[in-house]
Amino acid sequence: MMVVNMDIKKGRIQSLFQYNKSKIAPLLGLVLLVVFFAITSKGKLLEASSIENIYNQGFPLLITSLAFVYVMATGNLDFSIGANVGFCATIACYVAFFNTKLAFPAALLTGALVGLINSLMYVFLKIPSFIACLCMMFILTAANQTLTGGGSKMVPVELLQNDYSIVRLVLLLIYIIIIVIIFHKTKVGKQLEALGISVEASIQTGVNAKLLFIVSYVVTGVAAGLAGYLMLLRVGAASPTLGSSLTIDSIIALVLGGMSILGGASSSMICAVTGSLITTVLNSGIVLAGMGGDAQQLIKGALFIIVVSISTLRESSSKNF
C-alpha cells in the first residue's frame, strides 16, 4: 500500500500543474504514438495514402465522439449510439431504394428520434440514462437484425458507383463547425458542464435542465444518423453489426482525450479529436508496423496502457473513478 500512498502525495503536487497538463498530455500521447508507428512502419504511417486511410476509418468515430461530449459533459453516457448508427444506416439503405435523396434526411430523423426517446425516458420517466440507453441498444440491435434479415444488405447500385468523398467532406465540415460553435461559443456548453458538476445548483442558477438533457441526447442521435449515412456510403452495405463498436470507442476516445467520465469542466471538443485520432492511429498503425497474428491484441493492449498513462490526466484519488 506504500506505493499507493506515495502516489497520492505525488498526485497532490502534480495537481498544481494539472491545469496545463490536462491539455498537453493527451496530445503528447498522440504524438508519441504517431512517432512510434512512423518508426516501426518504416514511414508508411505518414504517407498520404495512409493519412487518407486514417481519415476514412476515423471519421465515424470523430462524428460520434464529438456529439458524445454533449452527453458526457452532463455526466451521462449514451450506450445506444453504436446501435443507433447501424440502425440509421439500415433505414437509410431502405429509403435509398425509393429515393436516394431522401436517404440522408431519413437517417438524421431516425437518429434524432431515437435520441429523443432516450432523453424522454430519462427526463420524464426518471429511468437512469444508463439503463434507458442500454435497453435502447438492445431494441435497436434486434430491430436492425430483423430489418437486414440477419445478413448484409447492399445499397442501390447508383449510390455505390458515385464518388461521395466531396459530399462527405462538406457534410463533415458543416457538422464539425456547428457542433463546435454550439458547444464552445454559446452558453449551451457551459450549461451542460454545469449540469455535470451539480444538477441542483444549475437549476438554481436558472438552467433548464430538462431541455438540456433532451438536447444532449438529440445531438448524439443526429450524430448517429450522420455517421450511419456516411458509413453506409463508405462500406456500400447495411449490416446488423455496422457501427456497433462505436459506443465503447467513443467513451474510450473521450477519456483518452482527457475528459472525465463524470463530465463537468474538463469537457471539450479537443478531447474527442485527440481521442479518436489516438484510437484510429492505434488500430491502423499496428497493421502497418507488421504486428499481426495472435499477439496483435496483446501489443495493442500494452500500447494502450502506455498511451493512457501518458495522456490521461492523473486525477487525485478522490476523483478517480
Partner: peptide, 30 residues
C-alpha cells in the same frame, strides 16, 4: 494495481487489461 498506479478511470483500466487478458487467453489456449 494498474488502476491505482496509472490513476486512470476504471473504465479505461478495464478496457486495457481486457485487451491483454483476452489475448493471453488465446495464446495460452493454443
Amino acid at each position: 494495481l494498474v488502476f491505482s498506479i496509472l490513476k486512470v478511470p476504471s473504465i479505461i483500466t478495464g478496457f486495457a487489461v481486457l485487451l491483454i487478458f483476452e489475448s493471453l487467453g488465446v495464446i495460452l489456449s493454443k
